[in-house]
Amino acid sequence: MRKCVYVGFIVKNILTIIFRKVTQVTNLIVTLIQGISLGSIYALIALGYTMVYGIAKMLNFAHGDIIMVGAYLIYTSVALAHCSPILGILISVASCALLGIVIEFLAYRLLRRASSLSVLITAIGVSYFLQNIALLVFGSEPKSIPVLFNIPAIQIGNSITITGETMLTLGLTVIIMTALTIFINKTKLGKAMRAVSEDKDAAMLMGINVNRTISITFAIGSIMAAFASLCYGISYTYIKPTTGSMPGIKAFTAAVFGGIGSIPGAMLGGILLGVIEKLSMAYISTQFTDAIVFGVLILVLIIKPTGLLGKQIREKV
């Protein structure tokens, strides 16, 4: 009898330990998935920063606010004008592309001969301008983005749940990044963009219309920001005029982290940043998350100043 109680006690303890471990592992998996999902939003935004930087050597600080504009456009078209979600997304994507072209013209092409500091300050100016327009039109009250798609969550085992929003974000990012990679590496225009990024005069001598190519790059970057705003909007639902700032800064960090100018670097940097953020939220401290994220960035830049995948190739003489 006594033996039985003893064995029972041991079995119970072992089971508890196993159960704890399992919960820990599943918690970790859930956190990782959330991190990758958040990170892929950062990656989408970071791609815009990095492509524009690569081709125009300009830090487009208005880029984050394109997300905010994209989100308000979805809100306006779907919640106010009762368009279908797909139409709303199309309107948002097309308008953001146009906005990118306008920003290129105002903050870059007109300032072609100005110092890079003037260009930077103009971009910050455009950023505040967009935020204030949004404040004027929509007020400071947060607006909520209606539910666009009803995708059921999936359950793996009995403790891992992946929400529909997360799946949509992951799926969309994978598609966009694959398409972008193919576009940059295989198409004539994509190759021309790389050529212009490297050497504008030589690109011109090849017959490439450099101005047009730069303007298309801004448009593509902004389209990705529009998709980021879609993912952001469906996951976080509330938007306000400053909605773009924080993800914008984080994504800029991600672009630098991965190596500014490098497209795979922006993808990697974005996803890592999201994962680090969620992990430190879950296991270290919610309050110090941002400090930890930026701390890791500083560490990486000290060890490898060009970022994770950034590189410098010199001309041979």
């Binding site: 490297e198 050497d199 003489v317």
Partner: peptide, 22 residues
């Protein structure tokens, strides 16, 4: 151009393709 100015991060074939961009 003087100093070659090939596109250093692109492959040889891609450089040649850029030559035929027009």
């Amino acid at each position: 151009p003087e100093g070659r100015h090939v596109f250093l991060q692109m492959t040889v074939l891609e450089n040649l393709e850029m030559g035929a961009y027009s």
